[in-house]
Design a protein around this nucleic acid. Structure first.
Lengths: 249, 249
DNA sequence: CATCATCGTTAGATAAGTCTAACAAGATCT
DNA sequence: AGATCTTGTTAGACTTATCTAACGATGATG
């Protein structure tokens, strides 16, 4: 529901970011967000939420009239997705790379999502792009130190020899989403954009290994509508062509 | 100056942890810590430091008489080292693995050091232990996505083939610090301990790739005195034997 | 010795986020 | 309709960390 804009992200306190994130998830899951539910999700009292909502409304992040429907503004949705994307990225790192349980990884991600800088995020994404094309790295690590603690076994023997995906030419099935047709879906492998555009795409939740469904695609200057992580996004063609995917062939 | 104890770490606010860390570093660097210096290092006013010191003194973390010498207690030193170790571990991750500048890596580490859980730390250390024995992984990553952004080059070709260190039997030169003589120094490769002992050793600052100097070592039940990251530590033999190192042969 | 500069402390204010308790507004059920 | 239950809001208090401004103490200098 949101076109990529250049709105500079407003610095915000961690609790307020958490409220936005919570609202975003509740709306996505139930179609609405009530004070009570937000309070429960964040484990605070309803009174506290009420006050927070007033602040968020002042900052133009939520549309909110006393006792009425609570919804995110465009700006709020963007901020929420930004945080949520960081959350998912960190969770994946702790779970898939370091081998932590989903629960522990999520907890850790929660604590860090507010302070992950744009640059660090960028680097982590590149790390995942790298792992995605050469998964034996993770595998090798998963087999050894993250797992049990023998201490004597050596991982490299297992690591180096076969790198299944690498032998396939990765560009073979690779395409940008700009050339996808409505109804098709694919998995992101790489974001080739750099700088602000890259950051904006990442903040929208477009990360390596997330899947994307194309809903509408017009010719020429028309935006491309996609679904990603449950969100509907509109991309310009120039943006779309920077997102490489692989299609289950 | 500290024997490894089983004192349960006290939960503490982030600012207070920062004060401890700052004091620790100032003492290590200049031999003393004044209110003024702490204030400058943390970029707050002296008044604020004064108040914080009172709280730290109440919590038995600093020895502190009004207007007199400021020093960490044993508990305080332990807490400071705990945070500092997290800081260093995270910095290394962002710098060495993700390829960020030393400055950016440090900033990011600062923001995360207070919330890194024991488990996540443990996993990261294992990751480094893994990388230490099979460095081609990092190298390969460093050559590709973290560096420039060609997007088309593929890292794996460079990654898999030669894994220099792996071909050497890592146990060859590997030994525990328990068998080191006074005056010798070595680099940590692995902490084989598990559970609480492992955590305690990590919290003391004993991480993969840190160097250790043995200062005194008695026979039998006597503790082993070492220097690590500028700190003097006493280890029991049972602990020392869990720390594997490589010596520049 | 008197003065002045530096350093540290105290008092009082502010801001953010939380709580409890009391209250108000709808919704539901006889 | 009236009683009651659920939900949300407001008022007031507390905690932590910070600030400014004023004050006190220590030590150096003319």
């Amino acid at each position: 529901m949101m076109l990529a804009t250049n709105a500079p992200p407003v610095p915000m306190s961690e609790p307020l970011e958490d409220y936005l994130e919570t609202i975003y998830l509740l709306v996505q899951e139930h179609g609405f967000a009530r004070v009570k539910d937000i309070a429960k999700a964040r484990d605070v009292k309803a009174a506290t939420v009420s006050i927070a909502l007033r602040k968020l409304a002042e900052a133009q992040l939520v549309n909110y009239v006393r006792r009425e429907y609570i919804g995110l503004t465009e700006k709020g949705e963007q901020a929420a997705r930004r945080v949520l994307t960081r959350h998912r990225l960190l969770t994946r790192f702790f779970e898939e790379v370091l081998g932590m349980s989903a629960h522990a990884a999520g907890e850790q991600a929660c604590a860090m999502e507010h302070v992950l800088t744009d640059e660090a995020m960028d680097r982590m994404v590149r790390f995942f792009e790298f792992l995605g094309t050469c998964p034996s790295v993770v595998t090798a690590f998963g087999q050894c130190p993250a797992g049990s603690r023998p201490g004597d076994e050596h991982p490299c023997g297992a690591a180096s020899p076969e790198c299944a995906r690498c032998s396939l030419n990765p560009q073979e099935r690779s395409m940008s989403i700009a050339s996808m047709k409505p109804g098709q879906s694919a998995v992101v492998t790489q974001i080739t954009a750099t700088g602000a555009l890259r950051q904006r795409l990442l903040d929208m939740g477009i990360l390596p290994e997330t899947s994307i469904d194309v809903e509408r695609s017009g010719p020429g200057g028309h935006p491309l509508w996609i679904r990603c992580q449950g969100a509907r996004l509109a991309l310009r063609r120039a943006e779309a062509s920077n997102i490489l995917v692989r299609r289950p062939s």
